Computed example of a mutant assay.
Amino acid sequence: MFRKLMLLTTALVTLGTSMAAAETKVLKYTHYQPGRPDQPKHAAALAFEKCVEDTTDGSIDVQIFPAGQLGNATTALEGLRLGTLEMAVVHDGGISSVYRPFDVFALPYIFPDHETAYKVLDGAFGKEFADAMREETGIRLLAYADNGIRHFTNSKHPIKTPGDMKGLKMRVQPAPVFISLVESLGASASAIDWAELPAALAQGTVDGQENGVTNIMAASLYQSQKYATLDGHVYSLHAYLIGDTFYEGLTDVEKKAIDSCVVQARDIHRDMTRAQDLSAQKVLTEAGMEVYVPTAEEIAAFRDIAQPAVQKQLEGSIGAEWVSKLLKAAAGAQANSQ
């Protein structure tokens, strides 16, 4: 009798353990910055992990894979669509490879400051854009965060006017819109993946690149780039993405946890990146770079050349609708802040 009771007890414990394991949903989460808490993406990921697991009492197990451990952005986005990956924080250029309208955010010199960008992204335009992306790709865009305001750097000479770009070989993201941006200013553009960029700069394959200070510091690009021009040509984005099939398979409580915790992660990500953006001159100077801050008139000279060229390219590649809507939303946000 005792033996039967022991066997029954063991079976019940095993069954209970198996049921608990079956109920736990694994959320694999990848991003592309080093796995250190001083990196905005990773600090945000750690906060998201704790928030989700605490809020759901462990029914979702968040597993973080930093520094592109699960493959490049294209691989991650395909994983979200196929259901082999649950969540990723991906930069704008990578997203454009599966949803071309994301290129619209590369329209240069459209956001004068962070506050204007947040109003547009967190408002009606941002929601409409996310809904359209989900419908076409099966990837749900949960939140927009900063990838840093993009600036030009190079190893040859200071860039103060569009004419200073002529003759430079510049690395850009693998997205046609960034090629149009650089070439409109007279430089030649080379599309090089992020992981290959430090080597390309060190070896002189390209003379320069364009990125935010967070990425310049994270990849130690200052080691091969002497000159930086803080023109702020593009407000670059990271997007918090989740496979829609996975999301729809969650309980209402779990969905609410994801939705609320991603806002917490987004705000940490934004705050850390914005702080570096606002201290770009100091940070890059201390890293040994020669930093130039253009005047409003000099930035206008860049805008007058680059914006019409990129707008024309965008209207040809993604159509005029999203371009028009973004310009209208940005103008409205600026008017409301004045």
Rank of each mutant, 00 (worst) to 15 (best):
A265H: 07
K28S: 10
Y227W: 10
F111W: 02
Q39W: 01
V293K: 06
G16I: 08
R3Q: 11
A219N: 11
P174R: 04
T245A: 15
E86S: 06
V253L: 13
L168V: 07
E53I: 03
D259C: 09
G316T: 13
L27A: 09
D38F: 03
R36S: 13
A45D: 01
K328S: 15
Q313Y: 13
S184E: 05
G68F: 10
T137L: 04
I149K: 11
S97A: 14
V293A: 05
I268Y: 01
D57S: 13
A296F: 05
G35Q: 08
T55I: 00
P37C: 07
Y32M: 03
G163C: 04
A21G: 02
I318E: 08
M1W: 13
L181F: 09
Q311G: 02
M272P: 02
N211D: 14
I95W: 10
E49P: 03
K119S: 13
G208T: 08
K282E: 14
Y247R: 02
F2N: 14
Q209W: 02
V52R: 01
I192H: 00
A143D: 10
G138N: 01
D92F: 03
V253D: 13
I110Y: 07
A88R: 00
G243H: 01
D259P: 06
M165R: 04
L77A: 01
Y99G: 00
Q69T: 10
L250A: 07
G138Y: 12
K325T: 06
A106F: 12
H269I: 12
S324Y: 04
P158R: 01
I216L: 14
M170Q: 05
L327G: 09
A335F: 04
F65E: 06
N215V: 12
D57V: 05
F129S: 09
E297S: 14
E321A: 15
A296C: 06
A187C: 06
T273G: 06
F246W: 10
H114C: 04
P108A: 13
V213L: 11
L80A: 00
Q338W: 05
L77N: 06
Q63I: 13
V182M: 11
K160N: 03
L121G: 06
L85F: 12
I159V: 15
V262W: 07
I179K: 14
L82E: 14
D57R: 11
G71W: 12
S279C: 09
G186K: 01
E321R: 07
L326N: 09
Q223P: 04
C51T: 02
N72A: 09
S180A: 15
D122Q: 12
G288C: 10
T161W: 02
T295H: 00
D54M: 03
L314C: 04
H31P: 01
L7N: 14
S184V: 09
L8I: 04
V172M: 02
L70P: 00
E254Y: 11
G71F: 12
K328Q: 13
A20C: 05
R3I: 15
R3F: 11
P40M: 01
E53L: 02
M165Y: 12
Y292A: 03
P198R: 00
Y227R: 02
